[in-house]
């Protein structure tokens, strides 16, 4: 490209020139073969790009992941919890695991309130841990036919995992977790912006706490068939109990 005006011609092509500069360039183009040829090349290349280059759009899986991530971010963090930093999504598994444990340890100290029943504190901590790490869900599905069999293969118990989207409680998946010495299966629901974790483990003989509220989180426990359940969420207590009622009907 021998002409000095070549970048100007490109700027003209890209619509970057004001009216008077554009007019000057147009006059130049009438007199300069090299620049006229450049303009033709630029137009041909643009045509090629328009015709042949794919524009990649975000898929539904990514959009769902982002929606859930924003829900967690929106609902889980209070200004005080921010002190402990934020998990990153694509660090290696080892690093994020260590980070999550450190966060959980710090949080446990922060949240420590002497409990007459250690189960309550443990379930609360497990709930918060699940919200703070990127380990909310091991199996992503709103289909009971996917979640329940997953439990059968990965946890000691297999609680019912029905979707209640019609009533406003969307099944988003399942998780394996540890609570008060039990290996628990967790059914995870979404109610609006709130996450509801339903922890389930093999029924014991001790009395379960009924309803508890701590630092804005509500918990409801019950025993049914051969399983003990604890539902935890920062949604309202009434909303939580509605889901419990739906679960009990299963």
């Amino acid at each position: 490209m021998s002409c000095n005006e070549s970048l100007r011609v490109q700027a003209y092509f890209d619509g970057e020139l004001d009216a008077s500069a554009a007019m000057q360039t147009e006059q130049h183009l009438e007199n300069c073969v090299d620049c006229a040829s450049l303009l033709a090349d630029l137009e041909a290349t643009r045509e090629l790009i328009r015709r042949d280059l794919p524009y990649h759009r975000a898929g539904t899986a990514l959009r769902e992941d982002i929606r859930e991530m924003l829900n967690r971010e929106e609902g889980a963090y209070t200004p005080r919890q921010r002190r402990f930093g934020r998990p990153r999504l694509f660090l290696s598994g080892a690093a994020s695991g260590a980070g999550a444990m450190a966060l959980a340890a710090a949080l446990a100290v922060f949240l420590y309130v002497p409990q007459p029943d250690p189960l309550v504190g443990d379930v609360m901590n497990a709930h918060l841990r699940s919200l703070m790490s990127d380990h909310l869900i091991d199996v992503v599905s709103s289909d009971r036919h996917t979640v329940k069999p997953w439990f059968a293969g990965h946890t000691d118990v297999s609680p019912p995992a029905a979707d209640f989207s019609k009533e406003g409680y969307k099944l988003v998946g399942g998780r394996a977790d540890y609570v008060d010495g039990h290996r628990a299966a967790v059914v995870v629901y979404r109610h609006g912006a709130h996450v509801i974790n339903i922890f389930a483990w093999a029924a014991g003989t001790e009395k379960l706490p009924n309803e508890e509220t701590q630092k804005g989180y509500h918990m409801a426990c019950w025993r049914s068939a051969d399983l003990d359940y604890c539902a935890v969420s920062d949604t309202g207590m009434d909303e939580l109990l509605d889901l419990v009622r739906l679960m009990k009907q299963q």
Partner: peptide
Amino acid sequence: LDAAYNLARWLVRPPLDADDIVQDAVL
């Protein structure tokens, strides 16, 4: 979001993943 994803797809090579980059960026 599509613009973000398209840019990520054109920038990113394995072992990096465009989905991961976009999620991190949106967060």
